[in-house]
């Protein structure tokens, strides 16, 4: 099995299969991050597409620095989101779209339940501080490790650990207050 470094190197050289591998491995995680930051499907779709187009345009200038490829993608995604939110003067999460696509294998009741869960989660995450919010989304929605999150946000690992801790504490307290 090829290492990610090899896959990236092959994609830069024009190997279509390697490109597909990178796309499949990273697309959902980038989309999920953007969706939870902007809270709107059509905007999340546009921004995700732009991230991948930008990344492809800059692929040949990508340098492997012993960090996962997705850290680089997240840096681009994060800038896209910041730019978008600044331009639209929006504060992160709006009401979630009705046609949200859920990863539910079961019936309508389950889907409704999961949709409510996501709506509730998005509402709670939205109440976190901007730094906590970003760490929680990157860690649990996009499944980045502490090191990857630190790289993506340009922060120290200790800071990420602290933000994760205080973020989970805050979410836990909000859930408790809710009950």
């Amino acid at each position: 099995m090829s290492s990610e470094k090899d896959v990236v190197a092959r994609a830069i050289k024009g190997d279509g299969e390697a490109f597909t591998q990178l796309y499949e491995a990273n697309f959902d995680r980038i989309y999920r991050y953007i969706y939870l930051r902007v809270g709107n499907i059509s905007e999340a779709e546009d921004l995700t597409q732009e991230v991948f187009v930008k990344a492809m345009g800059a692929l040949s200038s990508y340098r492997w620095r012993n960090l996962p490829f997705i850290s680089w993608l997240f840096r681009i995604a994060r800038n896209q989101v910041i730019d978008y939110l600044r331009k639209r003067d929006k504060v992160v999460t709006q009401e979630l779209d009705d046609n949200i696509t859920l990863h539910a294998e079961s019936g309508p009741a389950d889907i409704t339940e999961r949709k409510l869960e996501i709506e509730k989660l998005a509402g709670l995450i939205d109440k976190l501080s901007p730094a906590q919010k970003e760490v929680i989304i990157l860690r649990f929605s996009s499944e980045l490790s502490i090191i990857e999150t630190a790289t993506a946000l340009g922060k120290k690992q200790g800071t990420i650990k602290a933000l994760q801790y205080t973020g989970i504490m805050a979410l836990r307290n909000m859930v408790f207050e809710d009950k």
Partner: peptide
Amino acid sequence: QTTIAVRRSCSAVKPR
């Protein structure tokens, strides 16, 4: 427990 709940809800979001 909070972590598990957050992760479970997050993982339900998928692109069309």
